[in-house]
Amino acid sequence: MAAAVYAVHFSGRAPVSAQDFVNLQQGSQIQAGFRRAHANGFCISGEFQASGELAAYSSAKALQHGSYPFIGRISIAGSNPTAPDLRAPVRSLALTILPDTVHQWRTAMNTPPVMAVATPEKFFQQLLAIQTNTVPQFFADHPETAHFLEWRSHYQPTQSYATERYHSINAFYLVDQQGKQQAVRWAAVPLTDDAGVIADEEAPDALQQEFFRRLQQGPVRFDVQFTLATANDNPADATIPWPETNPQLSAGTIVIEQASVQEGGACNALNFDPLVLPVGFAPSADPILRARAAAYAESHRRRAREVLMQQVAGGADE
C-alpha cells in the first residue's frame, strides 16, 4: 500500500497532498474520532503569565504583560490512541492561548528541536521510510538529517511530561506596531526539579498517570523561552539549530493547573494548527510549517465527521 502511494507520488507527477499525508499517517487501522497523528493525549488548562519582555517585538496580546487563559494538550507521536506513552519517540505540548478570541495564539511544540528534513515532500518520504523499515537508508541519503540525528543520539526521554523541553521547531516572525519583523523560535523549558516516579512501567498511560498525580500536588510550570534569529540564521529551514549564543528572552510562564482525559475535554475539539496566529505573529517561509496546517486540517475534518456520525448513530439508538 505504501509502495503504491510512493509510486504515484514520486514518479514526478502529482505533488503530495494533505490527504496523502493523512492517509499515510492514519495507516490501515483507522481510529475513528481520533487525531491521525498524536492520537494519544490528554487535555490541560491553566494560565499563561506573560512577562511582557517580548512586547517590544510583537503587538500580540498574549505577549503583553498579563495573565491569559489557555487550553492545551499533551500527547505522544503516533496514530494509536492507546499506544504505551513511555515508548513513544516524540512527546508534545500544544497550547491555544486566549482561546475563542481573535487574539488566540496556537502552538504545537515537540521534543525534537529540529526537523530531520526541510520540505513536506521529503518529510513524506521519511514517513514512508518508517513504514517500510528503510529509515537508515533514508538518513544516509539525506545529509540534512545530521542535526536531527545528533540531537537524537543524546536525547534521553525523561520520567515525566513535566520535565521535557518542547520546541516550536519551525520559525515564526514577531511583528511590532510598526510592522518590523524579527524571526524567532521558542521552547517550553521545564521549571521543576522533581524527576517524577513512574508507578507502573507497564501501564500504557504511565506518563499520563504520573502527570495527573503530579498536578494534585500543585501546578506544573514551564518557561517560554524565545530565541531571536540573527542574520546568519535561515528561518525557512527547520533542520538547522540556531547557535546558543543567539539572544534569548523569556515570554512568560505556562502554569498548567488542570488536566482531563481528552474524551469530552475542551482540547478535543481544537486543531492545534501552528498557523492560527494572532496579529503580532507571522509564519516564516518554512514549507513544512505551511504543510502542517493543511495536514492538520484534513485530520480535523476526518475525526469531526466520525464523531458526528457516532453521535447520529448514538442518537438513533436511544
Binding site: D100, N268, A269, H300, R301, A304, R305, E306, L308
Partner: peptide
C-alpha cells in the same frame, strides 16, 4: 460554541 461534532456537521 467550540464543538467537534458541530464542526463535523458544518465542515461536511
Amino acid at each position: 460554541n467550540t464543538d467537534l461534532a458541530l464542526y463535523g456537521l458544518f465542515r461536511e
